[in-house]
Design a protein around this nucleic acid. Structure first.
Length: 1128
RNA sequence: GGGCUUGUAGCUCAGGUGGUUAGAGCGCUACACUGAUAAUGUAGAGGUCCGUGGUUCGAGUCCACGCAAGCCCA
């Protein structure tokens, strides 16, 4: 017959390899899904990783987290399809290709064709797929790797196009503009990545102006706003203040015109504009030209008091006038008092903050219409003012007699020096300076000075960049803001704060989704437009594209489809070659943009199934997701795009439960990076520790949503403490089960109710563990579950149950009690295999195989893997609360006795007569009595004596029950508790007898009940006492002759057992013992406890002789004994 | 600059709705156990609960303001 396999040493990595092999050979993953055909679905969405880099240890975290709930739900009877996926587009791939080819974006289309470039991207992006698949398998992440979705495939892109078309049809896709870094010298926008190139930010000295904006309806009153880009002032359309900041109105004189003015600025900024020395000067003493300008505060405001104030346009240029609510004061959360005036000038076209604020406030910006009727800013793409401003400035120069290094006409006002004019020319004046002089002359400038700051420059031309509105396609997410917020409230976020905080706030401040990317490798925007932009078409499928191309071919705009005779590929450059026909018969060209890659991944619920073109049934059964998990850094990435698309197009959430996990840092809490060399190689770690300890460590050490300080020592600890203990427990079981030829058979098992108390107790504990694990997992809390399993295994099962039940396993022939012990331990181990299978899938299956092999051999029908079984629910009938309480007392009391023995230096092998335990009530007494045999044998004590009130030696103490009394008495609690603390025996007896005690409180009588106080036993005079956990124990330390003898006998047994072991005897071998005579005490001990010694050591005889030849001298601590042990 | 998270023993972490002696594991020290044995048990030392104010009879817990670290965004 098969035996339970025993293992001297466990090779955890090998278990990983072997079980993986077993799964592969027997298709276990596939079976775990197929088995549940027709069952309720549990849907999981895989957030696609990009395979253009090697996976790191943090991917083990993310993928484990994804895996465990899918496995758990499978056991619970759901069908869990898990389609893998790959994210293939986007900037990182492009950058990697450019680096490898040694080219820049400029070279695309010149040194390398778009076709070749994209081909290179396609090859690069899957370069490390093999490593990823390898890791995925090795860590036991069950996901379908054979049929993953890949975002660059035509079918996937077609689904994206159909979604975009739906948005387009709903009017949610529009062309607008956004403020982006722009290089007029190069004529191109710059990505944030390009802006982050070293050397782009330079220290420059610019002319800064504090301008005076005249307040309407108040005489001579001006709001001061500071800017380092005076050229944006003609485009001003609002001023921003900080609502919580303090502002003042100051009466003073303009330092250039010397006219009396009232100016408004932040109180904290007065020092930068006004000299306190001038406070001594009377306003009336001021004469034009004086250096010191007197001033006085005439009014103070909070920022919010200024909201809505109207002012006159600074540059009243014909054609640039604006209707209300332009030229008003608004709030901006970015306004500070660190520089400037605490009031910020806003120009919609030239600042991202400005743009956002003004859009939110519904305030128009300064724009003019071009020939096609489009709104354009007053600065063109060369960085030059349009004539409408140029003429005004030229006229003002003439009016104020301003001369410059050259004659400046309407078309000569560049906002920065983009013409390489000679700045060393003494007469050189840039546009900012000219504007400053005009404003000074017109009593509109309060201060003009050079200001040194850092400003970004184009990495290619070295010229300063402008923030400039560039055309972009947007999804009008703001139109659905309220619905998206509402839907979010139905999502179960782990942790909750990410949902309400980070994600919730993001939704509350939603702006339209900028979809455009000026790149080459990505999903093309399927919109074709006529050159004048009056006609456009959004293509929603390949079929539609073919249809439209056919029209175009027949019209002669195209000669043939670019896909003629080859596989369809919806990437650039092919789609760019497609020219379509407009309804009016005009040529339409594709908008050159690609779309944000986040749209790719956010659309995966649909595109992974090529919905709506195929698989409608699968899609419907698997939407929305029950569960997703990804890093918290994805909050505004994948989590948002999933949510936005689902909310806007399907009026649904995309996922019901989500875990946003934290980062994996190194053990010192630093970010891991290859550069710093502190990155942990997942493959190396797997080779060393195997997958299970790694997974278990990551889940149990900290909540997944907290950052994990990854420490290999932690993995080793989990392996030793948890897996090691479990393995020891299994080995213990296997060792004896095999000796007794025990095979677990549920049909023949001893009913739980007939088993020993200890058995019933651990079974009861096991039911609690099952419920606890279930509750934690249903709440997506894996850390709680793993910790509960670990505590049960180590503290309850191994360190208590096995320790106390040990003797039942090794003594005598198999009988009902022994069988019950085997069955109990087996059931615990088998349950643990299932409970831990989601977290440690390899080890759990291995344990399961070891446990079930002999049963299967005996003809029992069992699932071939722990992952193919059904969840075993907890049986509430098996939970014995009283028994658990009793056992808890046994554990606590044992612990106290141990500590007393230690204090009295009495080793456990020395039997003692008795302990005294004060009991305050019958219930506690009964609970202890229930387990007193256990306690006695555990701590080697003959007797337990209970003492209660009748004994006369019990001393009780009393404490107030603060929780209860606090609510009742509040501030008077101190008096009440002082009174209770002063109680003696009399008062305690009184309240115990009567149930009530009347207390005088400031002349008022209040009644205290037994509930209001906590009574505990305190001390037993004259005894060695220990007290904790609400229990007190006193130990009788007197050693009688008999106890001493028994101690000697036990010591001898111990020494002989050691000898047996040294001799290499098997457990069942018999021996004979010869002992040399010693003193009377020892001789009597040998005589009186002969039977005991023989039974314990399996000795057939015990002879005590005058001397023993070639015996072993045993060290018995206080004396030596010569003994000879021989095998029979 | 804004939003969010975290801060408890040397290390990793627990500490529903506030309740008086703040816990666990590891590590350290000492002792014990020895047929689970490259295992195990018991005890001990170790704390400014990040800081400062506040609310309260009472704050690790609630509030405000800071500090430090991290993520995302600008």
């Amino acid at each position: 017959m098969k035996k339970y396999q025993e293992f001297k040493q466990v090779d955890y990595p090998k278990i990983g390899v072997d079980i993986l092999q077993f799964w592969k050979e027997n298709d276990i993953f596939k079976k775990s899904v197929d088995n549940r055909e027709g069952f309720e679905t549990f849907t999981f969405f895989e957030g696609p990783p990009s395979a253009n880099g090697t996976p790191g240890i943090h991917h083990v975290m993310a993928r484990t987290l994804k895996d465990i709930f899918c496995r758990y739900k499978t056991l619970k009877g759901f069908q869990v399809k898990r389609k893998g996926g790959w994210d293939t587009h986007g900037l990182p791939v492009e950058l990697q290709v450019e680096k490898e080819l040694g080219i820049t974006k400029e070279d695309i289309g010149k040194k390398i064709s778009v076709e070749e470039y994209n081909q290179k991207c396609r090859e690069t992006v899957m370069r490390f797929k093999h490593e990823w698949d390898d890791l995925t398998e090795k860590i036991g992440y069950w996901v379908d790797l054979d049929d993953p979705y890949i975002t660059f495939e035509p079918k996937y892109i077609e689904s994206l196009w159909s979604l975009l078309r739906k948005l387009y049809d709903k009017g949610l896709l529009y062309k607008g503009y956004t403020i982006q870094p722009f290089s007029p010298a190069a004529g191109t926008g710059l990505s944030s990545h390009e802006l982050n190139q070293p050397g782009t930010y330079k220290d420059v000295k610019d002319t800064s102006i504090t301008a005076q904006f005249k307040v309407k309806g108040q005489d001579n009153t001006y709001i001061l706003a500071w800017t380092t880009t005076p050229w944006t002032l003609p485009s001003n359309s609002a001023l921003a203040i900080g609502e919580k900041l303090d502002y003042v109105k100051v009466r003073t004189f303009n330092p250039y015109t010397f006219e009396p003015v009232n100016v408004i600025l932040a109180k904290a900024r007065m020092g930068a504009y006004l000299n306190p020395k001038a406070l001594e000067i009377a306003m009336s003493d001021f004469k034009a030209g004086d250096k010191l300008i007197p001033y006085e505060i005439i009014e103070e405001y909070k920022g919010k008091d200024l909201l809505g104030w109207e002012y006159e346009q600074l540059f009243p240029i014909e054609g640039l006038a604006l209707p209300n609510p332009a030229f008003t004061v608004v709030a901006g959360d970015y306004v500070t008092t660190e520089d400037g005036t605490g009031i910020v000038h806003l120009a919609k076209a030239f600042g991202a903050d400005d743009f956002r604020t003004l859009v939110q406030q519904n305030i128009p910006g300064v724009f003019v219409k071009d020939d096609l009727g489009n709104e354009i800013p007053v600065v063109d793409r060369q960085g030059k003012f349009l004539p409408v401003v140029g003429e005004y400035l030229a006229a003002k120069m003439k009016e104020h007699g301003i001369s410059a290094h050259k004659e400046l006409g309407a078309n000569d006002f560049y906002v920065k020096n983009y013409l390489e004019d000679d700045e060393s020319n003494k007469e050189y004046k840039n546009t900012d300076v000219i504007i400053s002089i005009i404003l000074k002359n017109e009593n509109k400038a309060f201060k003009v000075e050079k200001y040194e700051h850092t400003y970004p420059h184009c990495w290619r031309t070295d010229k300063p960049i402008l923030y400039y509105p560039l055309e972009s396609w947007f999804i009008k997410t703001t139109a659905y803001k309220d619905r998206l917020v509402e839907l979010n409230k139905t999502i179960n976020w782990k942790p909750e704060a990410t949902g309400t905080g980070r994600f919730g706030n993001w939704l509350e401040n939603l702006v339209d989704w900028n979809l455009s990317r000026s790149r080459f490798w990505g999903t093309p925007l399927p919109i074709w437009r006529t050159a004048d932009g009056t006609e456009e078409k959004c293509i929603g499928s390949i079929a539609e594209l073919n249809e439209e191309m056919a029209k175009s071919i027949s019209k002669g705009f195209m000669t043939a489809s670019p896909f003629e005779g080859k596989e369809i590929d919806l990437h650039r450059p092919y789609v760019d070659d497609v020219v379509l026909v407009s309804p009016k018969g005009e040529k339409m060209f594709r908008e050159p943009d690609l779309i944000d890659v986040w749209f790719d991944s956010g659309a995966m619920p649909y595109a992974q199934w090529h919905y709506p073109f195929e698989n409608e049934d699968i899609f419907k059964a698997n939407y929305p997701a029950d569960y997703i998990a990804e890093g918290v850094d994805q909050t505004r990435g994948w989590f948002f795009t999933l949510h936005a698309i689902a909310g806007m197009l399907f009026d649904s959430v995309a996922f019901k439960n989500v875990i946003a996990n934290g980062l994996v840092l190194d053990k010192n809490g630093n970010k891991m990076s290859k550069r710093l060399g502190n990155a942990v190689d997942p493959f190396k770690t797997l080779n060393e520790y195997g997958p299970d300890a790694l997974r278990w460590y990551m889940l149990s050490n900290a909540n997944p949503w907290d950052n994990l300080k990854f420490n290999l020592e932690g993995v080793a600890e989990v392996q030793r403490r948890f897996f090691g203990t479990l393995q020891n427990t299994y080995n213990f079981f296997a060792l004896y089960a095999n000796l007794d030829h025990f095979v677990y058979d549920p049909a023949k098992k001893v009913p739980i109710i007939e088993r020993a108390e200890l058995d019933q107790w651990i079974i009861s504990k096991l039911q609690s563990l099952i419920s606890e694990t279930e509750a934690a997992m249903d709440n997506y809390d894996a850390t709680k579950a793993t910790r509960a399993i670990m505590n049960f295994t180590v503290d309850q099962l191994s360190n208590w149950y096995v320790r106390l039940a040990r003797k039942r396993f090794w003594r005598g022939e198999i009988n009902k009690d022994k069988q019950a012990a085997y069955e109990t331990l087996y059931e615990c181990l088998a349950s643990l295999a299932q409970l831990m299978s989601s977290f440690a899938p390899f080890y759990a299956d291995w344990l399961y195989q070891n446990l079930t092999e002999s049963s299967r051999e005996a003809g029992q029908v069992l699932p071939e893997s722990v992952h193919l079984g059904d969840w075993n629910d907890a049986d509430p009938n098996l939970i014995k609360e009283d028994l658990e309480a009793s056992m808890q007392l046994a554990q606590d009391i044992s612990s106290l006795v141990h500590s007393l023995r230690k204090k009295e230096k009495l080793k456990v092998r020395q039997p003692l007569q008795k302990v005294l335990i004060p009991v305050l009530n019958e219930k506690t007494k009964a609970q202890i009595q229930h387990v007193d045999d256990l306690i006695k044998s555990e701590v080697n004590i003959k007797d337990i004596e209970y003492i209660d009130d009748t004994s006369g030696i019990l001393v009780k103490s009393v404490k107030p029950n603060f929780a209860l009394l606090g609510k009742r008495f509040g501030p008077k609690l101190k008096q009440v508790s002082a009174a209770i603390n002063a109680w003696g025996k009399e008062e305690i007896t009184a309240i115990e007898k009567e149930g009530t005690y009347y207390l005088d409180l400031d002349g008022e009588t209040v009644a205290l009940t037994l509930e209001d106080v906590l009574i505990s036993s305190q001390d037993i005079p004259g005894w060695s006492v220990a007290s904790d956990y609400g229990v007190t124990v006193a130990l009788d330390v007197t050693l009688t002759e008999e106890l001493k003898q028994e101690g000697i006998a036990r010591d001898l047994v111990n020494r002989i057992q050691n000898l047996r072991k040294d001799m290499g005897l098997e457990v069942q071998d018999k021996i004979t013992i010869k002992v040399a005579k010693h003193d009377d005490m020892v001789n009597s001990a040998l005589e009186n406890f002969a039977t005991y010694i023989q039974t314990e050591t399996q000795a057939l005889s015990l002879e005590v002789n005058g001397s023993v030849s070639d015996g072993t001298k045993l060290d018995m601590d206080d004396f030596e004994l010569t003994v000879k042990v021989e095998k029979v």
